[in-house]
């Protein structure tokens, strides 16, 4: 930066490429740059305000029940579908000989709550007649997807912890942890 000490043409050092634009008067360039900086700071201020405004609209706390809940001791469930948490959490706990999974009781068609018909071994949706097996697979009606399974964990205390914020319905994936807890009957 020896040009810094050069008193003859100090502005040309500030201009990015003086050789390419010899016609541009140096003083006007810096003023233009300066003006540009002034406006861009204003633009940045507005952009920042808008971004903060958008962030402001995302609440940091919500007054909804937690998506996670403790479904009680695993030992307390019999084989088959349990409707114990249907009213409170909209979830069926299903126990198979090898372990547990939790079905979210929301029809994948348009969001109604299906009913469990134990005698027929299927879930039936009252809205448009979708039928599901105990695994959650569609066997009748318009539903496009199997029922969602929620994340389920076995806590060291022996309690089942269900987390409805993590869901899976693809066969092959849904049978693996964390959507399934191995627990020999």
């Amino acid at each position: 930066m020896e040009t810094m000490s050069e008193p003859i043409n100090p502005v040309s050092a500030a201009a990015p490429a003086p050789a390419l634009k010899p016609a541009a008067p140096a003083a006007a360039m810096t003023r233009g740059d300066f003006l540009w900086a002034g406006w861009s700071m204003l633009a940045a201020f507005f952009a920042a305000s808008a971004a903060a405004g958008a962030r402001f609209l995302f609440p940091n706390v919500i007054y909804e029940p937690s998506q996670k809940f403790n479904a009680g001791p695993a030992a307390g469930y019999d084989l088959g579908v349990s409707t114990k948490w249907l009213n409170e959490q909209r979830v069926w706990i299903v126990r198979t000989p090898s372990g547990f999974y939790a079905l979210w009781a929301r029809c994948t068609h348009l969001g109604c709550t299906p009913n469990w018909w134990g005698d027929q071994n299927r879930f039936k949706c009252p809205c448009h007649g979708s039928n599901y097996t105990m695994e959650g697979d569609v066997i009748a009606g318009p539903a496009p997807k199997p029922l969602w399974r929620a994340k389920v964990d076995l806590a060291p205390t022996g309690d089942l912890i269900v987390d409805k914020s993590q869901l899976e319905c693809i066969p092959g994936k849904r049978e693996l942890p964390p959507y399934f807890v191995a627990h020999a009957a």
């Binding site: 900086a37 002034g38 204003l42 201020f45």
Partner: peptide, 9 residues
């Protein structure tokens, strides 16, 4: 103008 914009930001 420059100063106020800088300060706003």
């Amino acid at each position: 103008f420059y100063a106020s914009n800088a300060l706003l930001l």
